[in-house]
């Protein structure tokens, strides 16, 4: 178990270093950083001095090591566009994205799993069939279209919900939360649904397929043959076994919710990291792009690690046989 975690951590570090290398290459080699930083009227001497001061004349490994060490401490330099430290920008934007992603993830899991279970158990029911049809729409319509349609319907025609921004937020230390004000919650509804819809339908279809598989197994039949009530057979036996493979996919999906927030955030002008990234791309603000890249990779690595550990919790077959009882 400990060996397994150690191996996983080592792998994670290698992945992070590889991503950092790409981010660094982006920073160092896409355009001249000095050119991006200074105005047109800067003299050659001033440029050389700046280059010297920023260490851009040092050999490649030294520069990369400096970048990696700084990145590990959350330092990604200054944004070209905003003239502020990237870390400060991210701290400011981070809560907005996290709140949106978490609410969407909870929505996707809390709706997707029960719908998957329901459609598996009542395979030929009318409601199941309509869920399946709807899920097809959810899976095939692009996110931005759903967002725009929601804005059109609930924002423009019905005027029930705000169409952009986070609404009122309350600051709790450095964290700003929109979950505590009515306006913030109202602003959250449409972006969260837009972001969750794809993952929701994916989780639903996945749970359904796995559940149908598990319902055919002998241990489910044997449970029925022992006279256990349906609720027990379906939820204690079948659902638990269904969740083993579902955990992997769902875990990875949570990562992509954070990553894919870019589109939703642009549609709803949500002041999160995704919007910041899009603006950074438009302005070739390379430190921001590099920081975003490393941060998202970090999320994926952490989520993967958690998923692997969850396996141990759920599936006893993976636990090392300490008692040696064979």
């Amino acid at each position: 178990m400990i060996g397994f975690i150690a191996a996983r951590l080592l792998q994670s570090i290698i992945v992070m270093l590889a991503v950092a290398l790409i981010a660094f290459a982006l920073f160092r080699f896409v355009g001249d950083p000095i050119n991006n930083m200074v105005g047109q009227d800067t003299t050659l001497e001033e440029r050389a001095e700046l280059r010297e001061r920023l260490g851009l004349d040092d050999p490649f490994p030294v520069q990369f090591a400096r970048f990696a060490i700084n990145a590990a401490q959350g330092e990604f330099g200054f944004s070209y566009q905003h003239r502020r430290p990237v870390s400060a920008l991210i701290t400011e934007r981070f809560p907005a994205t996290m709140e949106l992603a978490l609410v969407s993830a909870i929505l996707a899991v809390a709706v997707g799993i029960p719908m998957g279970v329901y459609t598996a158990l009542k395979r030929y029911g009318l409601l199941s069939r309509s869920f399946m049809t709807l899920s097809l729409i959810g899976i095939s319509l692009p996110t931005f279209l759903i967002g725009i349609l929601l804005i059109l319907f609930f924002g423009v025609i019905l005027r029930w919900l705000p169409t952009f921004g986070r609404g009122d937020v309350i600051a709790i230390g450095w964290w700003t939360s929109g979950l505590l004000t009515a306006d913030g919650l109202r602003s959250l509804i449409m972006p969260a649904i837009t972001l969750a819809l794809f993952q929701m339908t994916l989780i639903m279809r996945l749970v359904r397929a796995e559940m149908l598989e598990v319902l055919r197994t002998d241990f489910v039949k044997f449970g029925r043959a022992r006279g256990l009530p349906d609720s027990h057979v379906h939820f204690s036996i079948a659902l638990k076994n269904t969740l083993v493979p579902v955990i992997t996919i769902t875990g990875l999906q949570l990562g992509s919710i954070i990553a894919f927030a870019i589109i939703t955030e642009s549609v709803f002008q949500w002041p999160g990291m995704g919007l910041m990234f899009i603006q950074a791309v438009a302005e070739v603000d390379i430190p921001v792009m590099a920081a975003y890249l490393v941060l998202i990779a970090f999320f994926f690595v952490v989520i993967n690690l958690i998923v692997d550990l969850l396996y141990f919790a759920v599936d006893p077959r993976l636990r090392v046989d300490r008692a040696g009882g064979h």
Binding site: F219, K221, A225, G227, P316
Partner: peptide
């Protein structure tokens, strides 16, 4: 019928490797 199963009529299946729920003791 379900009340009879297990209480009055027990059943034993063919493959012991797949008849037990792998996730519970």
């Amino acid at each position: 019928k379900r009340a009879l199963r297990g209480r009055k009529i027990g059943m034993i299946f063919q493959d012991p490797l797949t008849s037990l729920d792998p996730l519970r003791t």
